[in-house]
Amino acid sequence: MSDLLLFLAAEAPKYKWGIFRDVKGCVFGFLVGMALFVLTYIMIQRARAGLKIPEIRHIPGLEAFEEAVGRATEMGRPVHITDYYEYMGDYDTFAFWSYLSHVAKLCASYDTRIINTNSDYLTMVINEEIIRQAYLEAGRPDAFNKDDVRFLSDWQFGYTMGVAGIVAREKPAAQFLVGYFYAEALIIAESGNLVGAVQVAATSAVHQMPFFVAACDYTLIGEEFYAGAALLSKEPVIYGSVVAEDLMRVAFYALIIAGAILATLKVDALRNAVLF
């Protein structure tokens, strides 16, 4: 309590609009965030009410997940799925869980072995539960093998060599590299390539995208990674959120064009508003 009184008595730091942090773009970011939140909510409500919402684009890489698991089933070989940078609370991890849930359900229904390797021990526990649940829903709880959900190392290259070793020994017919990756991306992808696995990558790591495009059969790049995570659910309500994202992108493009024109005319109003 005394801390709070001292804090209130102290000279008030400068805040934008009296409350927002004094960092570039804080207020604009908040307003854009709110607009996006409201737009997403509206689209979700429209989808829920069965009203018409704009069509969303097709992502070809998504079908590759089922094809790859099907191939692994035919060949009688396992499926491997991993994400290096999978920290709890990171939105990439939430997206990864959507893909993991989808792949685990496919594997459980086709009775195909799924191997999941991890670099984070907290996330590993949730991954284990997601895969267990998928086998439970498929009516094959006894087919779930918890030894196939493995923690390797939280050390980047310890994890990398662990994955490369597992891929070389287990020879998965399909490998899914989903999430955020660093320098290990190409080593893991090439390990999969050496054993002839069909590889699907989905990443938000801009610097690793060229490596995945070069080494994998299908790659979901940029926001396709997040949109794909939503589309896998095949729920119209979640489709609504992707529609909102697309509409917001159009608004951003309009803002960029307006900004370019105003900057050419040496009018700083829009620039100042964005940086406020």
Binding site: Y91, F94, F225, A230
Partner: peptide, 26 residues
């Protein structure tokens, strides 16, 4: 790409905030 990633990541967070994203619960 970064603009798309921001929008995709933000909408993914909104889905979690609205309780729509439940696949992490299986």
């Amino acid at each position: 790409l970064n603009l798309g990633l921001f929008l995709g990541g933000y909408v993914a967070a909104v889905r979690v905030a609205l309780g729509l994203e439940r696949r992490y619960l299986g």
